[in-house]
Design a protein around this nucleic acid. Structure first.
Lengths: 217, 217
DNA sequence: TAGTCTATGTCAAATATTTCACATTTCATT
DNA sequence: AATGAAATGTGAAATATTTGACATAGACTA
């Protein structure tokens, strides 16, 4: 029996969420190395740069297969590409942003997403002052156009950058329209069907943990 | 011997980071309950709402002392306030934002921070087109004014919403000026002295884990 | 080509985290 | 006032995660 939202490799092995969370960081460091024309790296060298244990790097990577070579280490470009594939960055992932305020615009302006295959193809808002404007070539549409837009475009992800008061309702509507993945910036927990994936970015929670660490010293 | 960056209660007990990360979510749910005039709640009821185990809630809270009463449960307002104290939300935490682009402005506009005691008292940028403008009553200053500003104001936290290429250098300068806590939105790992606290918000890493879950189904 | 050295992949041990289970306390009802 | 039900706080068990250790494959040198 497959549990809800479980994540498995081709061999049907369950990968721990903590491992998955670390992959993008490996990917970033490997990208840096690649940019600096580094050809190969050992888990020991990488562990020193990243301030983690070499053992953890090897264990993490071995969840997905043997990418290294004994006595040699890892080929940077190969490992970079393999992790990219694991993360699904070898696909174009079309994104719509719901809420074209500062945060929505900030996401649309972020080049880092583009360069990793995340393509923002539309911003949506209710505010007539925003509708029709363009952010880095991406148009802001009336949210009433969303249904039609989703019919005509292959959208993988909806980013929710709107007030919490509206997020739950809009998310439900989007799920009904077939959106299966949400990147949620609103400070609520969306309650959606089991097969829908939600990644939360709760900024207030983030700064509260920072505050905790400041005041507990 | 106290390890670097360890976080302890008054009794000198080490609190696990995973517990700390969950506290703001409890705080949010309790705030909702409070708003809805709920007087008391049991760990069981709360666990159902939050989709965690009751046992985890009780274990988490007991790290900080007994806030509940057997046979009764937890008083919502009391528990809300106690968690707020644990998180340091009973203080005003002054924040400066370095980088007044969309993301910096989005943070300045976010009312949720205000209402939890986080007060944004200045935005800083190098862009002359931004300098002098005002976001929700907060002025954008020339970054050259930063040193003077920090001398005259009690700033707890610097939010870094600037390009990765500049973040490392600016963070180092701010640390030299005495800033002890950074909320880092740039996609780099800051390398700062051990006593400096860094909370990272790596948005690209967040969406990559979302992508992973989409493509691994 | 042989020998030495390096560094992976992996098993096992050590830690950390979560869940279970229950004694005890308190609430609520009769 | 007595009884039953509810729910905490807390040890202990069960899981999960991280670290350590090393046999072995393969790189590199001479």
């Amino acid at each position: 029996m497959t549990e809800k939202n479980e994540v498995r490799t081709e061999e049907n092995k369950v990968i721990s969420p903590v491992v998955i969370k670390r992959l993008p960081r490996y990917y970033r460091y490997l990208g840096e190395l690649l940019k600096n024309d580094v050809i190969r790296i050992s888990s020991k060298e990488l562990s020193k740069k990243m301030n983690v244990t070499a053992s953890q790097i090897r264990q993490d990577l071995n969840n997905f297969g043997g990418f290294g070579q004994q006595g040699y280490g890892y080929n940077v470009e190969y490992l970079y590409n393999e992790i990219g594939k694991i993360l699904g960055l070898d696909h174009i992932n079309n994104i719509v942003i719901i809420g074209a305020g500062n945060l929505g615009q900030a996401l649309a302006n972020n080049q880092e997403f583009d360069s990793n295959g995340f393509k923002i193809i539309g911003l949506f808002d209710v505010n007539p002052r925003l509708i029709g404007m363009t952010v880095r070539g991406v148009e802001v549409y009336d949210i009433d156009m969303l249904e039609e837009f989703l019919r005509e475009n292959d959208v993988m992800i909806a980013a929710l950058t709107l007030p919490a008061s509206k997020a739950t309702k809009v998310a439900g509507e989007l799920a009904d329209l077939g959106i299966k993945a949400f990147w949620n910036f609103a400070p609520v927990d969306l309650n959606l069907p089991e097969d829908v994936i939600v990644e939360n970015v709760h900024l207030a929670e983030s700064i509260m943990t920072l505050s905790y660490r400041i005041h507990s010293k």
